[in-house]
Simulated assay, not measured.
Amino acid sequence: MDALALLLERRSQPRLSTPAPAGEALENIKQAALRAPDHGGLTPWRFIVCEGGGLKRLGLLFEQSAIENGKSAKEVERAPQLPLRAPMIIVAIARYQDSPKVPRIEQVASASCAVMSMQMAAQAQGFNGIWRTGTYAQCELVRSELGLAEDDELVGFLYLGTPAVQAPPPEAKAAEDFFEHWT
Score class of each variant (00 low, 15 high):
82 L>F: 00
128 N>K: 00
104 R>Y: 08
30 K>F: 13
6 L>G: 08
17 S>W: 02
157 F>M: 03
86 A>C: 06
154 L>W: 02
38 D>E: 02
43 T>I: 11
72 S>M: 08
124 A>T: 04
88 M>Y: 07
162 T>S: 15
47 F>Y: 13
38 D>C: 02
16 L>T: 02
56 K>H: 13
80 P>K: 14
74 K>V: 10
88 M>Q: 11
10 R>D: 12
16 L>S: 07
110 S>A: 15
13 Q>M: 14
56 K>S: 14
81 Q>L: 15
153 E>A: 15
36 A>P: 01
48 I>E: 07
75 E>Q: 12
111 A>K: 01
19 P>M: 12
49 V>H: 02
179 F>N: 01
172 A>P: 06
119 Q>S: 14
68 E>N: 04
141 L>G: 00
7 L>I: 12
46 R>I: 13
14 P>Q: 07
133 T>F: 01
89 I>L: 10
77 E>S: 09
104 R>W: 09
137 A>T: 09
23 G>M: 07
108 V>R: 10
173 K>D: 00
67 I>F: 06
157 F>Q: 02
105 I>C: 12
111 A>R: 01
85 R>W: 08
94 A>M: 11
138 Q>K: 11
165 V>M: 06
26 L>A: 08
36 A>S: 09
64 Q>P: 03
8 L>A: 12
30 K>H: 09
3 A>F: 11
100 P>R: 00
78 R>T: 04
20 A>H: 08
124 A>E: 06
125 Q>C: 09
40 G>V: 04
31 Q>M: 14
76 V>D: 00
173 K>G: 06
42 L>E: 05
31 Q>G: 10
1 M>G: 15
125 Q>E: 13
19 P>G: 12
54 G>F: 06
